[in-house]
Write a protein that binds this DNA or RNA. Structure first.
Lengths: 203, 203
DNA sequence: ATCTTTTTGACCCCGAGTGTCATTAATGTG
DNA sequence: CACATTAATGACACTCGGGGTCAAAAAGAT
């Protein structure tokens, strides 16, 4: 998985003034400040000062302060789509989606802000909790499209939308528990919430 | 259900300068502007001007512009709690929760911004979609507490949290479909999403 | 050396949110 | 009635995020 964020255009030519910073540099400097000073207390000027760049430059790299912690998320959605497409046809739908979610959340352990730290920041900061809904929407859409394809419906029909929303619900619950328990395993928690759901609706 | 928002303190005495406006007046004036000019394009000054009041007064009545469309939502949570508490013990858990959600969403048809208009604004405006997660959290907590009580667990255990998240997922899916289809019935859609979920996980 | 391309930084303005404080408008008391 | 008390408002100032504009900077291309 490339570390280059989606915003980075392939740079049509090598002409022109070279970029003095990068998405990665901003993200890492920002992240350090977020965890030490707190997200709200960190201003864009702080981040700019930390890497010797103006505030206006930061806002050109990221559409908003809220988008910085998510980093290269958009990129990973293409991977998610492929994961789902590669699922065996014979698998029951809920099993396929569940395995897809598991695979999607199998992150490399060497990420620069660790996956856990990033998710902790996102899931415990109110402003980021709120903003993330907009990110989740495209994640849900990937699932809805897959379900629609497998069931011969349209992505905005009731079943695909329901499955997308529910899958997100389970993932969020699992992440929450994962952050609360220092030595919990995310895959295990994803299995557990799914198991709870199944027993819940069929009790 | 009283129309007085949660912010309104009972006014300890009748002394002092009388309030020149009210939460209700602000909400209705704001709502009219939101639907005509759009949420983003409506400034707090616009709202203040519409009811002859300063911008600072608006921000004292509502903690943020995003909170205005929700109106008296917090109040209704107490009602939700009672609805759930009144459910027959014998009912299967998922049935009890489902009926609770149905009852909670049985709104009087004469509300001032109609329930549908309010939900359309909230669910189609990105800033409000994002902000609303924070409201949903307390709604989910009501469900989690009920589930915890019935299953002898704690509200932050995995099952109650899962049920809370999933119930919200179903409700949001239903609302989305309700807004998309002019003559759809919300209760019917809530039933339908629940049915889809059941067949999905047990297929 | 000059032209072209691209990024940066320096301004600009706007709107939300928040703190402070004098002013206003009511009630209660002598 | 005059005066103290209480509570809400309005005016002002400030910070921060977001975004538009444009000249300057720094590279490659000719």
């Amino acid at each position: 998985m490339p570390t280059t964020p989606a915003h980075a255009k392939p740079r049509s030519s090598l002409r022109g003034r070279p970029a003095v910073t990068s998405h990665a540099e901003i993200e890492q400097a920002a992240f350090r400040l977020f965890v030490t000073k707190g997200f709200e207390a960190t201003t864009l000027d702080d981040i700019g000062e930390a890497i010797g760049v103006g505030r206006r430059t930061i806002t050109r790299y990221y559409p908003s302060k809220n988008d910085i912690p998510w980093g290269q998320f958009d990129r990973t959605l293409d991977g998610f789509r492929e994961i789902l497409r590669a699922m065996p046809e014979g698998l029951p739908l809920h099993e396929a989606v569940h395995r897809g979610v598991l695979a999607f959340n199998d992150f490399p352990a060497d990420a620069s802000p660790s996956h856990r730290d990033r998710m902790r920041l996102i899931l415990t900061t109110p402003a980021l909790q709120a903003h993330s809904v907009l990110r989740y929407a495209s994640w849900r859409e990937v699932i809805a499209e897959y379900v629609a394809e497998r069931t011969g419906t349209r992505p905005d029909d009731l079943l695909p939308q329901t499955v997308g929303q529910v899958a997100l619900a389970l993932a969020l619950t699992s992440y929450q528990a994962w952050l609360a328990d220092e030595d919990a395993s995310l895959p295990h928690l994803l299995d557990a919430t799914m198991a709870h759901l199944r027993s819940y609706v069929s009790a």
